[in-house]
Design a binder for these strands. Structure first.
Lengths: 144, 144
DNA sequence: TTTATTTAGGATAAATTTGTCCGAAATAAG
DNA sequence: CTTATTTCGGACAAATTTATCCTAAATAAA
């Protein structure tokens, strides 16, 4: 459904949020370990999340990544997915037809519109806060 | 959403169905042209669809691909997707967690289950007949 | 200021997906 | 039987995604 990079990115962001809610900064190394992702690859993903303004990064000793606590509630799953995978999941025809739209629909057009609208709405309605607290409560875990 | 191979496969199958309903066999070349897909790559995909029993293939002059007319109604979009992409779209955690299931759900588990169930149901309820007649009526087109 | 630590970012490599090439096998028709 | 046509299938190539390596830049602390 999502790219590997996006999966790592979501998990990493959730973990950073959990730590940020405890006023802790986390290092790349710690994140990669927790999320079970390759360190250097994770670095690239965090870099792009930082450029998108979703997470903050700080260099140097005691450096690492964190998220402004006031943002944790407003950041949505959709923002993370969009920052990494762009809008390719939401846009275009389910069959890859370029000329397919509401006026010249392919045979499955309406069916895909429904599914994708649901997905989009779900992602837009799911806040990072929700994800982070769901995890914090101990019901869930990010490894493997 | 689907792999390129799967997109080509769906479009090719729809086209073969349309022709089969007119008692016509179609060649690889004609299919690739209609579907706007690379010929040799399309050959591989059709090969696997033939092995899955979704389409029939015949070698030699006047050879080509066709679908048993009695099957056109029972073949579902899900069958085509499954033959090419397997079940990776439907199975597993939205975040790629291996230990995520109903008993140990990740923060987005239930949300993804809903979306994916919808997708699966839609694919299982969409028949090739429906796709082929929708196209035949001229409302739609497969190229580009 | 020096050193140690941590992210940034470019270059490169491995893996996967997508796409190509070509000869073999089947088969219809002359 | 021979030939032309068409799919089959293996090997190879290109493109994309995933992953690694290494140096630079920032920065906290001694």
């Amino acid at each position: 459904m999502f790219s590997k990079a996006c999966e790592y990115g979501i998990k990493a962001t959730i973990y950073i949020a959990v730590k940020s809610m405890r006023q802790e900064r986390v290092s790349l190394k710690e994140i990669a370990e927790e999320v079970n992702s390759p360190v250097a690859f994770t670095a690239k993903i965090l870099q792009s999340l930082a450029k998108s303004g979703i997470i903050d990064s700080h260099k140097g000793p005691t450096g690492g990544f964190q998220i402004d606590e006031s943002k944790i509630d407003t950041i949505k799953l959709h923002d993370i997915v969009h920052a990494i995978d762009g809008d390719k999941i939401f846009v275009g025809c389910g069959l890859g037809l370029e000329q397919c739209d509401a006026s010249q629909p392919c045979p499955v057009h309406e069916k895909f519109v429904g599914i994708r609208d649901n997905l989009k709405i779900m992602l837009q309605n799911t806040s990072l806060y929700e994800l982070a607290t769901g995890l914090d409560i101990g019901l869930t875990h990010l490894k493997r």
